[in-house]
Design a protein around this nucleic acid. Structure first.
Length: 256
DNA sequence: AAGAATGTCAACCGCGTAAGA
DNA sequence: CTCTTACGCGGTTGACATTCT
């Protein structure tokens, strides 16, 4: 038995929004706000749309502070960094990027950023700065920006401000699936599945254990040196991020 | 030039959860 | 406490655009 739909599908218009509908929604929201009730709002605004659809259209497209496309290198760095910590918590990631929506960030990741990283990882040259763990150094990303300056130093807003340890960048083998970039998401999902909150899911995603199986044993432990080219951090096994960012990478990526 | 393949992104779907009755 | 309602979110879909063969 399925969930009851939020509105009568036969009675509401679906598909792309017309300029007239956009204008009706925009002017209504600007004058009255959503009224705290998106479900009843379309009727008041004279729209034959589902309330959810109106909310989505407003949040993802009509909101005045929205920026579309043209992600900067800095934004790329923030997205990658937060994704490794939070997994697919797009709303959280988007909240750190001014004018970006979760949908935008999600689309950008799935269609561009992920592919770019995979392509870069495929051509990465493995640089063993110490053993274990080996370090993967990314080759240049496509485009005019050289790899060395792809992600310049910047203050990345993160959920974790203390010194980073190796643990923070090593994904549990159990969560590794076909998609190496689904690592954190997998842990978040697992956490969510047992009833924990998003916060705890995020927390567990950022607390990967280095004790897990192949991780950290010198064979399956890889770090992706994404931008500094400086190799791995302190000799005490701690990584610091003075402007360089290290990301987890499934070892199979570079070996296929 | 035309059709196929691939990429992009807006929109939809359905689940989890918070809030209120 | 239970039920209902609505919101917010992440995953997925599908239409359109672009690139390739």
């Amino acid at each position: 038995m399925g969930r009851t739909p939020c509105c009568d599908r036969a009675a509401v218009k679906r598909g792309p929004w017309s300029p007239e509908e956009d204008e009706a929604l925009r002017s209504y929201v600007q004058r009255h706000g959503s009224g705290g009730n998106w479900i009843s709002m379309p009727k008041k605004a004279g729209l034959k749309r589902c309330g959810k659809s109106c909310r989505l259209r407003w949040l993802n497209y009509l909101r005045p502070d929205i920026r579309h496309g043209g992600f900067t290198d800095e934004e790329d760095a923030v997205i990658v960094s937060l994704y490794t910590q939070l997994g697919s918590k797009w709303s959280l990631i988007a909240s750190q990027l001014e004018g970006r929506t979760d949908n935008d960030v999600k689309n950008y990741w799935n269609t561009k950023l992920k592919k770019r990283l995979l392509a870069a990882a495929a051509t990465a040259d493995v640089v063993s700065t110490r053993s274990p763990p080996p370090v993967l150094r990314l080759a240049a990303a496509p485009g005019p920006t050289p790899a060395s300056s792809l992600f310049p130093s910047l203050a990345i807003p993160t959920v974790k401000t203390e010194t980073y340890t190796c643990d923070d960048f090593l994904a549990p083998t159990a969560f590794r699936d076909d998609d190496p970039f689904a690592v954190a998401g997998g842990s978040a999902d697992a956490a969510a599945a047992d009833g924990s909150t998003s916060a705890s899911a995020a927390s567990s995603a950022s607390n990967w254990s280095a004790d897990n199986g192949a991780v950290g044993d010198g064979e399956g432990s890889y770090l992706l040196d994404f931008c500094t080219g400086s190799g791995i951090g302190g000799a005490d096994g701690h990584l610091q991020l003075p402007g360089g960012y290290y990301y987890p990478l499934d070892p199979t990526l570079s070996l296929v």
